[in-house]
Nucleic acid binder design. Structure first.
Lengths: 232, 232
DNA sequence: ACAAAAGTGTTGCTGGTACACCCATGT
DNA sequence: ACATGGGTGTACCAGCAACACTTTTGT
């Protein structure tokens, strides 16, 4: 199996700026979704012989004519059918032994998608949403990558209004608060939470109410993209 | 010149998990130092024919048996002689045309060193400290990398006590404040700055005074590594 | 009627900012 | 004596946390 990497160990270039060894490069996407009050991550059954029966992140190799952003975008598009999700580079993982077949460097991307907004490609029934809190082991170093991206997500939602990417266009304040609580693992005072969100100006009152809810329905809001004032 | 990349375009692997194209991989270090009140970055004269006379970041190719952290560490050690500086991965740059000789993916590292604490390897007199504010163009996409790392530095010093890596072991409050101001490009009230820093508990009073200063000498402090309480 | 969650205001604390005076040292 | 920057305290304001009651809807 290691022989497929034979031939990549080449001569040093004349300018001595050119690498004397070439690497396989890939992207892996940590795709988060929020489904029925639970933060989930999209995983696929590993097709690598050494990790049969285990789950892994969605990834692909970088192609000759694309950059890493394009590659991660392509993975998302091919797998979920969406093409305007939040997507951001997080970190590159390069441990020497992270891939059993040889040196593969992978760049992790954080993706936030609205679970309701897309259909998983039905061909790919090896794809499933898993509750993040219940993921134990993953193929390769993907557990470490997942944890790194989760930590990044936790940090980022306190600074930047990216959390809305996980919700439907119109959402209730309860949805929003529960999502914050689910991601951060702590609870907020309902009244203070409302006040804070309103003062940021990021919420647009849609003048609609929740439906099919078994109690007093709440108002629906949408995210005001223009109110980016480094708020929240 | 492009021929050196011939032969890296190989067959698809049987597991279809293995890349069908291999890349050159490198690290580039954005090494910041603080010298006489000025934030500086360590640059080297480019030895690439296309960028002769231009400056570039310190980097090297990733070797077969090391990971990216090790590679950046090695670059720092080889160039500055230091071996315990602050070093952190920032981002991987992968634009298709970023390197004139072919596909080279590079991972940028942010390094903070104490300029006074080390001697630049004298062999390497192509190495020089440049005031960050005066850097205009650099070889490759290194200007973009520098700006990215500078933005990361600005963000990080507000959250984490990494700024001390740029100062000598013992420093005055004025040094510290001026360094913050130099990096962030804004000024602070001297009295409020002191108060804030003291309440974090990150400063240890060394019971020593500045010397050789042309006015009333100030107290010297050192950084209390144990007071990491996510403060500042 | 009862349960469940929506909606609303006040108070105190804490941290940040603005600001003025005296002190120690070098020249 | 004068210039330079060190060292200190107070008052105000804004943002955050703690907290209780009334309202609307479904069952």
């Amino acid at each position: 199996m290691k022989e497929i990497f034979a031939g990549s160990n080449n001569k040093v270039s004349p300018t001595n700026k050119i690498p004397d060894f070439r690497f396989s490069v890939s992207v892996d996407c940590v795709i988060f979704g929020y489904d029925n009050g639970v933060l989930k991550v999209l995983l696929i059954e590993s097709d690598h012989p050494k990790f049969l029966g285990q789950w892994s992140l969605l990834g692909d190799v970088l192609k000759k004519e694309e950059d890493l952003d394009n590659a991660s975008y392509r993975v998302l598009r091919e797998r979920t059918g969406l093409d305007d999700m939040f997507l951001e580079q997080v970190k590159t993982f390069s441990a020497v032994d992270r891939h059993p077949d040889g040196r593969v460097i992978t760049t992790a991307y954080l993706a936030l998608v609205n679970v309701k907004n897309h259909q998983l490609k039905t061909i790919d029934n090896a794809l499933h949403w898993h509750a993040v809190s219940e993921v134990s082991t993953l193929a390769f170093d993907h557990k470490l990558i997942l944890e790194t991206c989760l930590a990044t997500l936790r940090k980022k939602i306190e600074d930047e209004p990216i959390i809305f990417n996980l919700l439907e266009k119109k959402f209730s304040l309860r949805d929003l608060q529960h999502l914050f609580e689910e991601i951060l693992g702590k609870e907020f005072d309902r009244r203070n939470f409302r006040k804070k969100l309103f003062t940021t100006g990021m919420l647009i009152d849609e003048n609609e109410m929740e439906v099919d809810v078994h109690h007093r329905p709440g108002k629906l809001y949408s995210f005001n993209k223009d109110a980016f004032k480094e708020h929240q």
